[in-house]
């Protein structure tokens, strides 16, 4: 076991754990944001640089700080490592720059985008973002394309995190899309507009941190904050059948995977569950999902909670806020 200190909080983790995963074990605000790393997808991470942290002390033997900020998603911890995330002004400053880079080509069409309200980039730019950009250049533009029957690709919004490529590689037997070209002009595309038809291909919508890949069956149907996310399940021969059903009254507007506190789906679901089962009789509704109080989706969202008040009557201490 290795001892690592992140933002003055110490934790012991196994060898080979990355800084990001060590921070996730602590939880809360210590966790660096991640746009491209996805714990369920092998090989993901290291591309967006959002999770940069400062290593103030490399290990017990070498107490010097690392010369540059490191990507926490791909740097393994060492014994005695001291990491600064929010406590380092350097990291905050660097992250501001990263947000600016990510927004260089990302259109500000949140009022139109279906991802708004649950978008990682929206949260990130709100948290760290700047109101102004230093560049005068026009944003790159691509025509909208349909990849597959139910998936719409808005290449304009893509931040090239490669998550969908890894998802298609690892969940389906034959990947039909990938990144074409390189550098500034690289784009996600299918090979000569081939459609993505694999029965697990819908998961690339869930892994997309922005609104580049969206569900065509939900396109412009509603805004996520008008809907109530409910846990639902059904017997499915292909996947676990455990999903989040986004409902308005008794109507199911869309089906997604159940996302955990880090925005990653707990279990990947199949396309039949996602796109075809929109009737309430297809599902067993288990109850409302937990939504963070800070999220816009929590508007008019009621869920059962054990916590009656913020102050524990017996301990007399403040509860840990979720």
């Amino acid at each position: 076991m290795l001892k690592v200190t992140i933002d003055n909080i110490s934790i012991e983790v196994e060898e080979g754990t990355t800084i990001l995963n060590a921070a996730r074990k602590i939880g809360g605000k210590v966790v660096p944001p991640a746009m491209c790393y996805y714990s369920k997808l092998k090989g993901s991470g290291g591309k967006c640089r959002t999770c940069l942290v400062k290593v103030a002390q490399s290990c017990t033997k070498d107490t010097r700080p690392m010369s540059k900020l490191v990507a926490s998603c791909s740097t393994p911890v060492q014994d005695g490592m001291v990491v600064q995330n929010l406590t380092s002004p350097e990291v905050i400053e660097a992250r501001k720059g990263i947000v600016e880079f990510l927004l260089l080509n990302h259109p500000l069409d949140c009022p139109v985008c279906d991802q708004a309200g649950e978008c990682d980039l929206q949260d990130l730019s709100f948290g760290y973002g700047m109101e102004e950009t230093a560049t005068d250049d026009e944003r790159r533009e691509y025509p909208m394309t349909d990849i597959g029957e139910n998936i719409k690709l808005h290449m304009n919004r893509c931040i090239l995190c490669y998550r969908c490529v890894y998802a298609a590689d690892q969940l389906t037997d034959k990947r039909l899309h990938g990144v074409l070209y390189r550098g500034d002009v690289s784009e996600i595309s299918t090979f000569i507009n081939q459609s993505v038809t694999n029965e697990f291909s819908g998961n690339i919508i869930d892994v997309c941190p922005v609104g580049a890949l969206t569900d065509k069956t939900f396109r412009f149907k509603s805004r996520v904050w008008f809907l109530n996310p409910m846990n639902a399940h059904r017997e499915c021969t292909r996947c676990s059948g455990k999903v989040a059903a986004w409902m308005f009254g008794n109507e199911i507007f869309r089906i997604t995977g159940r996302k955990d506190q880090f925005g990653e789906v707990e279990e990947f679901i199949c396309n039949e569950c996602r796109f075809e089962k929109k009737d309430i009789n297809d599902w067993v509704i288990d109850g409302p999902r937990h939504i963070k109080r800070q999220s816009v989706i929590s508007a008019n969202h009621y869920e059962e909670t054990k916590k009656q008040s913020l102050i524990d009557p017996i301990e007399g201490k403040m509860h840990e806020q979720k």
Binding site: C110, P111, V112, S222, R223, W225, V296
Partner: peptide, 9 residues
């Protein structure tokens, strides 16, 4: 209006 729903929320 692009029907973004912010007025409603």
């Amino acid at each position: 209006c692009t029907s973004c729903g912010l007025c409603a929320v």
